[in-house]
Amino acid sequence: MGYAHWEVVPTRWKDNDVYGHVNNVVHYSLMDTVINSWLIAEGGLDIHRGPVIGLCVESHCNYHAAVEFPERLAIGLRVGHLGRSSVRYEVGIHRADRSECVAEGHFVHVFVDRETRRPVELTGTLRSALEALRAG
């Protein structure tokens, strides 16, 4: 599996769609939530007042198995690529016991100046935290 960070999250009643399984867009929400909660807790990202913010410029998800409410999911997170101002997160969504990967995806963030929206170099605590998530 090779994920540096794991977080267990529950599915919610509203996550099921009319076909009786967790809708595909929920997987993206789970990935986004785990990434951003990690950035706040470990990377020191201040999403409300900090000078730097991360903008999602690419996302992707492959689905391997259906998930239904109520179920707890283990979300694995790692950094697949760390650039000067961007990062590609790789995310695995597994059953809570990690016995089966139900979806795999990635998100690419470009970190920018909050005001100008121009890319900024990743430095300090944020860069160190992202390096600690690197795959391999």
Rank of each mutant, 00 (worst) to 15 (best):
M1D: 15
W6E: 15
V9L: 07
P10L: 02
R12A: 14
R12N: 08
D15K: 11
N16H: 03
N16C: 06
V18M: 13
H21Y: 06
V22A: 05
V22Y: 06
V22T: 06
V22E: 06
N23H: 09
N23I: 09
V34F: 03
I35N: 07
I40P: 08
L45H: 05
D46K: 05
H48Q: 15
H48E: 13
V52I: 11
L55E: 00
C56N: 14
V57F: 00
S59H: 02
S59Y: 00
N62I: 14
Y63P: 08
H64M: 15
E71V: 11
R72V: 11
I75T: 07
L77C: 09
R78P: 12
V79C: 03
G80Y: 08
L82P: 02
L82F: 00
G83V: 01
R84D: 10
R84Y: 13
V87L: 04
E90F: 05
E90P: 07
E90M: 09
I93L: 12
S99E: 04
C101Q: 13
V102L: 06
E104F: 08
E104L: 11
E104N: 14
H106A: 12
V110D: 00
D113Y: 00
D113Q: 05
T116F: 06
R117Y: 08
R118Y: 02
R118L: 09
P119D: 04
P119Q: 01
V120E: 04
L122D: 03
T123S: 08
T123H: 09
G124P: 11
T125I: 13
T125G: 12
L126I: 06
R127E: 01
R127D: 01
A129M: 07
A129P: 08
E131L: 07
E131G: 05
R134D: 08
A135N: 10
G136E: 13
G136Q: 11
